[in-house]
C-alpha cells in the first residue's frame, strides 16, 4: 500500500517535473535563440535602412540647391555658386571601368579555377589556390601605387597599340591614347577582382558531383570535353554569381582607381585617353575640400552608387534563380 502510493507519487512527481523541465528549458532556449536570430536579421535591415536614410537626408539640401540635372549632367561643380552637378560622368566611368575589368578578369579567373580544380597536380594546386587568395589580401592602396608607378607607364605602349589596331571601334578610338586612362584603371580593377571570382568559381567546381564527371569521362570525353559536359553547366549559376560579386567590388573600389585616373571633365568615350572618374574615386578626391553643399552632392552621388550596386546584386540573384529553375 505504502509502496504503491510511494511509487505512484514519485512517478507523478517525476512525470510532472520532467514535463515542466522539458517545457521550461526547451522553450527558454528556443525563445532566446529565436529572438537572437530574429534580432540579427532585423539589425541588417535596420542598418540598410539607416544607411539609405542617412544618404538621402544628407543629400536632399544639396540636391535642392543644384541648378543642373542631377542624373544627366556631366558637370561636377557643387562648390560653385550656384552649385551645378550631375552624375553622368561618374556613372559612365564607374560602369565602363567595372564592366571592362569584369570582361578581362572573368575568363582568366575561371581559367585559374579550372586549372586548379581539374588540371594542376595536387602539389601545385594547393599553393596556387592559396596564392590567388592572397591577391585578395593585398591592400588596395598597394594596387593603387602599383597601378600608378609600375603599370601606368607601361600601359602607354599597350594603349597606343590598341588604338592603332582597333581604333575603328569607337571605345578604342581617339587621338591621344594615354596612360592614366579608364582602360588602365580597369586593368588594375581586373587584377583586384580576380581572386574573388576565381575562388568562388573554384568552390563551385569542387562541388560538381563525381557522378557527372564520371558520366562524361565514361562516354569517352577528353578532359576539356568533360569540363564542357559536366563542370561548366553545373557551375554556370555559381560563376555568374561570382562575376557579379566581382562587379560589385569593382564598382565600389576607391583608392586604386583614384590614384590611377587623371581627372578630365566630361564623358570621354575614348577609354584609352587620359581622364574619367568614378563615383568612389570622385568622393575620395573631392571630399576633403568640399563645402557643405559639395559634401551633400558627393553623398547624393554615393546614394546613386548604392542603388546601382543594389540593382546589380538583385539582377545577379534573378539570373542565378532562373538558371536553377531551368536545371
Amino acid at each position: 500500500m505504502t509502496t504503491d502510493t510511494g511509487v505512484s507519487t514519485t512517478a507523478a512527481a517525476a512525470g510532472g517535473r520532467v514535463r515542466d523541465a522539458a517545457i521550461g528549458t526547451g522553450r527558454a532556449g528556443d525563445k532566446i535563440f529565436a529572438s537572437a536570430a530574429r534580432g540579427s536579421g532585423i539589425l541588417v535591415l535596420a542598418l540598410m535602412a539607416a544607411i539609405a536614410v542617412f544618404l538621402i537626408w544628407k543629400a536632399i539640401p544639396a540636391l535642392q540647391k543644384n541648378e543642373a540635372a542631377f542624373l544627366t549632367s556631366e558637370e561636377w561643380n557643387p562648390n560653385a555658386q550656384p552649385p551645378r552637378f550631375g552624375i553622368a560622368q561618374l556613372a559612365f566611368g564607374t560602369v565602363v571601368s567595372s564592366l571592362l575589368a569584369l570582361a578581362m578578369a572573368t575568363p582568366v579567373a575561371i581559367g585559374i579555377a579550372l586549372f586548379i580544380s581539374y588540371y594542376a597536380p595536387r602539389s601545385v594546386a594547393g599553393p596556387l589556390g592559396y596564392l590567388v587568395d592572397l591577391l585578395a589580401a593585398v591592400p588596395s592602396i598597394v594596387y593603387g601605387l602599383w597601378g600608378l608607378l609600375v603599370l601606368a607607364p607601361r600601359m602607354e605602349g599597350v594603349s597606343g597599340f590598341l588604338n592603332s589596331a582597333l581604333g575603328w571601334i569607337p571605345l578604342f578610338g581617339g587621338d591621344s591614347p594615354g596612360k592614366n586612362s579608364i582602360f588602365t584603371a580597369s586593368v588594375v580593377l581586373a587584377i583586384m577582382i580576380l581572386p574573388i571570382i576565381s575562388s568562388i568559381s573554384r568552390e563551385v567546381f569542387l562541388q560538381v558531383p563525381r557522378a557527372h564527371v564520371e558520366a562524361a569521362l565514361a562516354l569517352g570525353a577528353t578532359r576539356w570535353e568533360m569540363i564542357k559536359l559536366a563542370v561548366l553547366p553545373y557551375g554556370r549559376s555559381g560563376m555568374i554569381g561570382a562575376a557579379m560579386l566581382g562587379l560589385g567590388r569593382a564598382m565600389g573600389e576607391t583608392i586604386a582607381v583614384a590614384m590611377v585616373l587623371t581627372f578630365v571633365p566630361g564623358i570621354n568615350w575614348h577609354i584609352l585617353e587620359d581622364g574619367g572618374t568614378t563615383f568612389a574615386a570622385n568622393i575620395a578626391n573631392s571630399f576633403a575640400e568640399a563645402t557643405e553643399t559639395g559634401r551633400g552632392a558627393l553623398i547624393a552621388s554615393g546614394l546613386v552608387l548604392f542603388v546601382i550596386t543594389l540593382i546589380v546584386n538583385m539582377a545577379a540573384r534573378a539570373v542565378v534563380a532562373r538558371r536553377k529553375e531551368d536545371a
Binding site: P209, A211, H212, E214, A215, A216, L229, A230, P233, Y234, R236, D326, A327
Partner: peptide
C-alpha cells in the same frame, strides 16, 4: 546511380 547530365 542513374547520372544523366542534369542541365541537358
Amino acid at each position: 546511380r542513374p547520372n544523366p547530365f542534369p542541365t541537358m
